[in-house]
C-alpha cells in the first residue's frame, strides 16, 4: 500500500477519488435512507418528549459531523503546513461549506426541537451557542479563502487561521459552560455506552450517523475534485497570460 504522501500528486487523487466516489455516495444514500426511515417510521414516541424525539436522527448526527468537519479541516491544514500537500489544503477548503451546512442543520433542528421542550425558539444554551460560534468560524474561514488571490498564500493563511481558531473554539466551548448552565441533555452517544437512550432509538441513530458521515466524505471527495480542477484552471490561465 503506497504511503499517503503518494496522493500529494493530484492526478493520483483524482483517479482514486473517481473510483471511491460512487461507492461512498451509495453507502451514504443507503445509510441515510435506512437510518432516517427506520427512525422516523418504526420507533415509538418518547414518553416525555412525544414524537419530537424523532428529530434526534438529524440533530445529533449533524452536530457530530459539524465538529468532525472542523477537526478534519484542522488535520488537513496541519498536513498542508508540514508537508506542503496541495490536495490536503484543497480538501480543507472543500470541506468548509459542508461543515457549515451541518452546523446550520444542527442549529436549526436544535432550535426547532427546543421550541416545544424549552418554550422558546432560541435558548442561549452553551452547546447550542457553541455551534453558533462554530458557524462564525466557518464563515470567517471561507471568507478568508475567497479574499486571497494567490492559492498557496491562501492555503497558508487559512491553515494558520484554522489552527488558531481551533484553540479558541475549545476555549469558547468551556467559557460558555462557565457563562450559562445548560438546558441541553447529556451526551446522547457517549462511548462508554451506558444506557442513556434506549436501544430501540440507538440503532437507527447510529445508522443515520454513518449516513451523515459517508455523505460528508462523498461531498468532500467530490468538492475536492472540483477544487483541483479549479486550481488547474487557474494554473492554465496563468500560463496563457505569461504567453
Amino acid at each position: 500500500m503506497n504511503s499517503i504522501w503518494e496522493y500529494a500528486n493530484p492526478r493520483k487523487f483524482m483517479a482514486t477519488s473517481a473510483f471511491l466516489l460512487p461507492w461512498v455516495a451509495g453507502l451514504a444514500a443507503i445509510c441515510l435512507v435506512v437510518g432516517l426511515v427506520w427512525g422516523f417510521f418504526f420507533t415509538p414516541d418518547d414518553f416525555r418528549q412525544g414524537s419530537t424525539v424523532k428529530i434526534i436522527y438529524i440533530h445529533v448526527p449533524a452536530a457530530i459531523m459539524a465538529v468532525n468537519a472542523w477537526l478534519m479541516m484542522l488535520v488537513t491544514s496541519l498536513i498542508w503546513v508540514i508537508r506542503r500537500h496541495h490536495v490536503s489544503a484543497l480538501a480543507a477548503k472543500a470541506a468548509a461549506p459542508v461543515g457549515m451546512v451541518f452546523t446550520v442543520i444542527a442549529l436549526a433542528t436544535g432550535a426547532i426541537w427546543g421550541q416545544p421542550m424549552w418554550g422558546t425558539w432560541w435558548e442561549w444554551d452553551p452547546r447550542l451557542t457553541s455551534f453558533l460560534i462554530l458557524f462564525l468560524f466557518y464563515l470567517g474561514y471561507m471568507a478568508l479563502w475567497e479574499a486571497i488571490e494567490n492559492p498557496d498564500s491562501a492555503a497558508d493563511l487559512t491553515s494558520v487561521l484554522c489552527l488558531v481558531g481551533s484553540v479558541f473554539a475549545v476555549i469558547s466551548r468551556y467559557a460558555l459552560l462557565f457563562w450559562n448552565q445548560g438546558l441541553h441533555q447529556g451526551a446522547t452517544l457517549s462511548l462508554d455506552k451506558e444506557q442513556n437512550i434506549a436501544n430501540v432509538f440507538w440503532y437507527p441513530l447510529v445508522i443515520a450517523l454513518c449516513g451523515f458521515g459517508f455523505l460528508f466524505l462523498a461531498l468532500v471527495l467530490y468538492r475536492t475534485q472540483t477544487e483541483i480542477r479549479a486550481r488547474r484552471l487557474k494554473a492554465l490561465i496563468a500560463q496563457e497570460r505569461m504567453g
Binding site: 412525544g50 433542528t109 416545544p116
Partner: peptide, 14 residues
C-alpha cells in the same frame, strides 16, 4: 401528535 409541525419542519429543513 401535537408535535407534528416541529418534527416535519426540522426534517424538511435538514
Amino acid at each position: 401528535g401535537k408535535y407534528a409541525v416541529y418534527v416535519l419542519s426540522s426534517y424538511a429543513v435538514t
